[in-house]
């Protein structure tokens, strides 16, 4: 650690528990840049930080909640969304951000993901997708591309992955975007858009896990992942979501895919209350 270079401070430090640094993430991990984009997006969206609540599940990305100096909850595996749902409905002026990984949100928590989309609960979900379970040592998960090697798909993954933007859009989300950690400006803007837009907003962040997924698939160091994103990414706003599947080495379609307005769950509660007032059930 003697020659590890650490930046003195950054302008997002006031949103970080700097007394908890260094963090547990591997050098080159994609979670840190994503967290940076989120913290900058808080200011960009001009949010009152006292009202921002970060909820995460379990896994590498789930640890993000513990590093932010905001009201934050590190819940159980897969359950960040229903926990955040309770917070939001009980105190509607809170700004809920679920910050978690692909395994947490799409496998064990997949049911909550689609139901929160269906309800259009007013919250922003930042899903760091690194294509595997990093914390437990790189097992295949619900987003692992076919053919990819992981510690539980030693012969190549035969378990078809979710196309997350398509899944979440079909569920009813108001906003769906995908960027990689190479696209820090677009990502920061997308998160800020998600934070300001009413309803269920979902940002998938393609991120390197060079230590596990990358190593097992010979994708090189973290910087090589970024180089590959530059080559593989195709920006396609409002893309046909049948074309946003991700393969091991193929193109990655990124962009803002969905940006619509439909009543949030809170809106629907309000109109139900009006009806309940006028005539009893």
């Amino acid at each position: 650690m003697t020659d590890t270079a650490m930046a003195d401070s950054q302008f997002t430090d006031h949103y970080l528990r700097v007394d908890r640094l260094p963090h547990i993430w591997c050098p080159g991990c994609g979670i840190g840049p994503t967290l940076g984009c989120f913290l900058r997006a808080i200011d960009r969206a001009e949010l009152d930080a006292d009202k921002v609540v970060v909820v995460s599940g379990i896994g590498c990305t789930g640890r993000a909640a513990g590093y932010v100096k905001l009201d934050s909850f590190h819940t159980t595996h897969g359950r960040a969304i229903p926990f955040a749902t309770g917070l939001k409905l009980a105190k509607p002026d809170l700004k809920l951000v679920v910050f978690s990984g692909d395994g947490d949100l799409a496998a064990i928590g997949g049911n909550h993901l689609i139901h929160a989309g269906r309800r259009n609960i007013d919250m922003t979900v930042i899903c760091v997708n690194n294509f595997n379970y990093g914390m437990t040592g790189g097992q295949m998960g619900p987003t692992t591309p076919l053919g990819a090697r992981t510690s539980t798909s030693p012969y190549g993954n035969f378990d078809p992955p979710f196309n997350l933007p398509q899944l979440v859009a079909a569920s009813g989300a108001a906003y769906v975007a995908r960027w990689t950690v190479l696209h820090v400006r677009q990502l920061e803007k997308a998160i800020a858009d998600g934070l300001t837009k009413p309803g269920f907003t979902f940002i998938e962040v393609i991120a390197p896990c060079h230590a596990s997924y990358g190593r097992m698939n010979k994708l090189g160091q973290a910087v090589d992942h970024l180089h590959s994103y530059r080559k593989r990414c195709i920006v396609k706003n409002e893309a046909d979501l049948r074309e946003t599947e991700i393969s091991l080495h193929g193109p990655i379609v990124v962009g803002k895919f969905v940006d619509t307005r439909r009543p949030t769950f809170g809106d629907r509660i309000d109109s139900m209350l009006h009806r309940a007032h006028d005539n009893k059930p």
Partner: peptide, 17 residues
């Protein structure tokens, strides 16, 4: 909620609110 797992979590969240 969509199941009892979600129900339990939602009441925890509400309580923290």
């Amino acid at each position: 909620m969509e199941d009892e797992i979600a129900s339990m979590n939602a009441i925890l969240g509400a309580s923290w609110a």
